[in-house]
């Protein structure tokens, strides 16, 4: 079976089924926004949502993750986590799936990061395709992530009364078979899917004023642009943009001693290139002073450096950095300003 169909009225039954298979995480409402949370009541799952405050990266790259257990006297070290549990990310937008793909690329690049890969091995991704824009901040079309591009086990598309489910892996297939309410998609279902996709083409338009290769060129040539000075002047260095980014993975390490002052754990904790001491060395020299240089670095880590290194853009188009920015710094505006400058 390649495509299955599920009536919306059976969704909650399926969620209950998934709950039994593994730890289930899905989007739900939090005040006026949305967050991924472990599913307790399936009724709380919300599939019509704008990108969650934090991307699901918190489940495969936790905010604070144990790296090792240690004792000083006698000197002992051990892995902090022996066993990782299976989990399902449910209702993931295609932009966030692109984010997971980016993280895979970075953490698989030798030397591998086993902490990340161990979690990733236990992850099942059930995506949902967006049929309209979440809001004006997203730039998913320019990034090519407004449509599914692999990287998931199952992908749901809302065709009205039903969801069409694209089965993309054996792991995914096992979650939709032997259930009487999930059937193979009929020809009519597939036609409906086709119509939905056609309609979508009229809604999603490229948000940047030029295609990605031009964006890359603009970044390549505009390192010294005044655009960065302007962004730096406005930045308050709150670090929101990097925390909410699905492809920001910088971290710091720290030791937490128990009260014995002998045993403890070493963990890693999200860190950000926007922080004051991020690039400062012991001798006191700060190699990336100033908010302009730090903001520029953040942008280059989406549109330039990973393209050189991995042949992949690390912006997913989710729009979170713009949505969360205290100072109204817009990614679309920044990129377009750069393109405009480059065109002059």
């Amino acid at each position: 079976m390649k495509y299955a169909s599920l009536k919306k009225s059976d969704l909650n039954d399926w969620l209950k089924h998934l709950q039994k298979k593994a730890k289930l995480y899905a989007p739900r409402k939090k005040e006026n926004l949305f967050v991924f949370r472990p599913v307790k009541e399936v009724e709380d799952v919300c599939l019509e949502y704008i990108p969650t405050i934090l991307p699901p990266k918190k489940y495969y790259f936790p905010q604070k993750e144990k790296l090792l257990k240690f004792s000083s006297q006698p000197f002992k070290t051990a892995k902090a986590i022996e066993k990782f549990d299976e989990f399902i990310l449910f209702g993931v937008h295609t932009c966030d799936i692109a984010g997971i793909q980016c993280m895979d690329v970075a953490f698989r690049d030798a030397p591998e990061d086993p902490n990340y890969l161990n979690r990733k091995d236990k992850m099942t991704i059930i995506g949902i395709e967006c049929l309209k824009y979440c809001d004006e901040y997203a730039n998913c079309t320019s990034m090519g992530n407004h449509v599914p591009r692999g990287g998931y086990d199952l992908m749901m598309v809302d065709i009205g009364e039903k969801f069409i489910i694209h089965i993309n892996s054996e792991k995914g297939e096992r979650l939709v078979t032997k259930l009487d309410y999930i059937k193979e998609a009929s020809e009519a279902d597939m036609n409906a899917l086709e119509r939905v996709r056609e309609a979508k083409k009229k809604i999603f338009k490229e948000e940047f004023t030029a295609a990605l290769p031009k964006v890359y060129d603009a970044f390549d040539k505009r390192f010294a642009s005044d655009v960065w000075k302007d962004v730096g002047r406005r930045c308050v260095a709150c670090g929101n943009c990097t925390a909410v980014c699905p492809t920001c993975y910088c971290f710091d390490t720290a030791d937490d001693m128990e009260l014995s002052l002998n045993e403890g754990i070493r963990y890693r904790i999200w860190n950000s290139c926007q922080m004051d001491d991020f690039a400062k060395v012991a001798g006191g020299e700060d190699f990336r002073k100033g908010r302009d240089g730090r903001q520029r670095h953040r942008y280059y880590r989406k549109f330039k450096y990973p393209v050189d290194k991995y042949n992949r853009y690390f912006c997913t188009g989710c729009g979170r950095c713009t949505r969360t920015c205290m100072a109204d710094i817009s990614l679309i505006e920044t990129v377009n300003s750069l393109l405009k400058e480059e065109a002059l």
């Binding site: 005040e31 006026n32 934090l54 925390a243 950000s272 922080m275 004051d276």
Partner: peptide, 17 residues
């Protein structure tokens, strides 16, 4: 020497603003 926002975001709070 960074803002409370850094920790607040990690805790996935809805911004007070």
């Amino acid at each position: 020497n960074y803002a409370v926002c850094v920790e607040c975001k990690m805790n996935e709070n809805v911004c007070r603003y």
